[in-house]
Computed example of a mutant assay.
Amino acid sequence: MTQTPTGLIDVHHHAIPPAYAKALGDRVAIPGVDYPTWSAEASLDVMDRHSIAAAVLSITAPGVTFAEGDEARRLARQVNEFFAQTVAAHPDRFGAFAILPLPDVAAAKDELAYAVDELGLDGVGLLTSYGNRYLGDPEFEPLLAEIAERGLPVHVHPGTPPAKDLATFDLPPSLYEFTFETTRTVVSLLFNGVLGRLPHLKLIVSHAGGTLPFLAQRLTYGPTIGKYLTDRAPADVIGQLRGIYYDIAMSATSYALPALTELAAPDKILFGSDYPFMPASHTTENVEGFHRYPGWDDQQRTAIGRTNALALFPRLAGV
């Protein structure tokens, strides 16, 4: 199947640059997860076979958090320069989310400027937490404010929970904890007022928002449960949740999509594959689930599969 001008735009598509794989070495990236191999050519083959016109590349957990100080800054720079080279070689097929050396906010701001202003990358990729702090922590708000001011999309990918006492039942955290991590970081952004103060932040969350569609109404009950939350709870929890973008990686199913489409308008939903951490066979499953879901009309399906993403990524739209 060849790529066509009306192909999908995949906003949740990972890359593993050689320098990153070398730096990661024998470390366990995500406990219990089989670490895949990757190449641009393999991605392009999977994309062509599934009518995916373009993919926006990102680094999954643990990002560069396994490195510290100068090493983390160097590795982030190497990854971003690799992304820029890959995009330059295939400008109509790839975009890229810059990786930042967090939790060092000052270094992250420097790398953001370089990655966007010098390399021309398309947005920013963040994890749900750094150390023991989720994205709603006040430390991260200046960075998020700069991202919002620049009008950049920011893709948030879950990682292993920072709390060491969470029961995992000897199962990979990506099997179910990742969905809770997405929920935790968005709740921190909600109840710390960040989403209210940064209404123009183009936040993209993974995997249909984790458990957010299921919990959306429950999250409005904060002041009912505890009066101390009266001044912290957003006046319009549902409205702020509806302002977020949601990718449907691992989620184009008859279980997840009805809940998501009750919460998110069709102009806030984006296609994602999670390749190569989910194999090509899953890309087939997710593409088929996307096309088969009866809750969208043709215009909405085109928006979710393609035009919503092109509105977020003007460089890709231009090519």
Rank of each mutant, 00 (worst) to 15 (best):
L257I: 11
F94P: 05
G196N: 07
T179G: 07
E262Q: 15
P213H: 03
Y246S: 11
P158F: 13
A15C: 15
E177C: 05
A15K: 04
A67I: 01
E118K: 15
E141A: 12
E181D: 15
S51P: 00
H291S: 00
F169I: 03
E111N: 07
G210Q: 13
P103G: 11
P172M: 08
F214V: 14
T2C: 05
A311M: 05
A42M: 15
E177Y: 09
P101A: 11
D26F: 08
P258C: 04
G32T: 07
E177L: 13
I238H: 03
T284Q: 04
D110G: 04
T185A: 00
L198E: 06
R306F: 12
V79F: 05
Y35S: 12
V124A: 13
Y20S: 01
H12V: 07
K22V: 07
N192D: 07
L201C: 11
S51E: 11
A53M: 08
K164Q: 09
T2V: 13
E146W: 10
T179I: 10
T168A: 05
P314N: 01
P199Q: 10
G32E: 05
P103Y: 08
G131W: 13
I204E: 02
T37F: 14
A113S: 14
P161A: 07
L8W: 09
M250G: 04
I269T: 00
Y221E: 00
Q300S: 06
D231Y: 10
G226W: 08
R93N: 14
T179K: 11
L201R: 05
P276S: 02
L241I: 13
Y176K: 00
M47R: 04
P31W: 10
M250D: 11
D236E: 06
A249G: 12
A113K: 14
G295E: 02
L270T: 02
T65M: 04
G63M: 05
P258K: 05
E41F: 15
N192H: 15
A303K: 10
Q85H: 08
R242P: 00
R218L: 14
Y114P: 00
K268A: 01
V11G: 01
A19K: 04
A67L: 13
A76T: 06
Q217T: 10
G295V: 02
T307G: 04
A98E: 12
A249K: 06
A15D: 13
A249C: 12
D170N: 15
Y176I: 15
V28S: 07
A61F: 14
I59E: 03
L241Y: 11
I99Q: 14
T224A: 12
